[in-house]
Nucleic acid binder design. Structure first.
Lengths: 113, 113
DNA sequence: ATGATCTACTCCGTTTCACGTAGTACCTAA
DNA sequence: TTAGGTACTACGTGAAACGGAGTAGATCAT
């Protein structure tokens, strides 16, 4: 099934998307989940995004602060650390060359000679 | 480490690349391995490509024929089945929208409103 | 005050894939 | 007969996505 392939293809990508969402400033978890849910091609859920947020936190790519909310438990606002910004830049660089390589493979590049 | 992320990102992609290599006609295993090794961003080895070839075979996306070789054991020439061509078309379609979605996320698209 | 509902997460188990290491086996040429 | 190129196969590990269930704070209608 193509769905299964898509699940595999998403590996690594959700993490990249989380960092991309945070590149402009802080956002809280639920908000990030809702934002990524809107990208149909990703179609992620809470159980995918929250573990990524905490993993990126323990790896010090993200920092956070808790802010009381008027509608529910305190919100945890995440933002990129300097370390996280470096990682995002590395990911951007790799993603760019990867997409270019795939594009070259799609278009005409023959193997053999 | 970024290397680990790259390993995750490759999941699903190697399979896609194998189908892309075969889209024009048949190739034998060793040749496919050498072709994909030349793509630095993928940097795959035999132990990655051969299992994919046999998986795609049992899933009937590929067919093959054995041809005696002048230098070694018979070569197994793989080619796309009609089913495989459909799958490749689906993958192309998904890959295209995914790359576009990531591009949109990279450029300016804000969340929240 | 009590239950319903929204918000904001956390935990656990399963599946799948990439990949490293090692091993098998075939064939030609010196 | 052995070295070297060719063509795979087997096995185990690690990491990520994901489904489903659970936890818990806060507001609001009854």
């Amino acid at each position: 099934m193509i769905e299964n392939w898509i699940t595999q293809l998403r590996k690594g990508l959700v993490e990249y998307c989380v960092l991309l969402v945070l590149r402009r400033g802080e956002n809280y978890g639920y908000e990030i989940v809702q934002a990524l849910k809107q990208i149909e091609e990703l179609s992620v859920s809470e159980s995918t995004v929250y573990p990524i947020l905490s993993r990126l936190g323990t790896e010090r790519y993200l920092k956070w602060r808790d802010v009381p909310s008027s509608a529910g438990p305190p919100r945890r606002y995440f933002s990129l650390t300097p370390r996280g910004k470096v990682r995002l830049a590395e990911m951007n660089a790799y993603w760019t060359v990867l997409v270019a390589a795939l594009q070259a493979l799609k278009q005409g590049k023959e193997i053999g000679q």
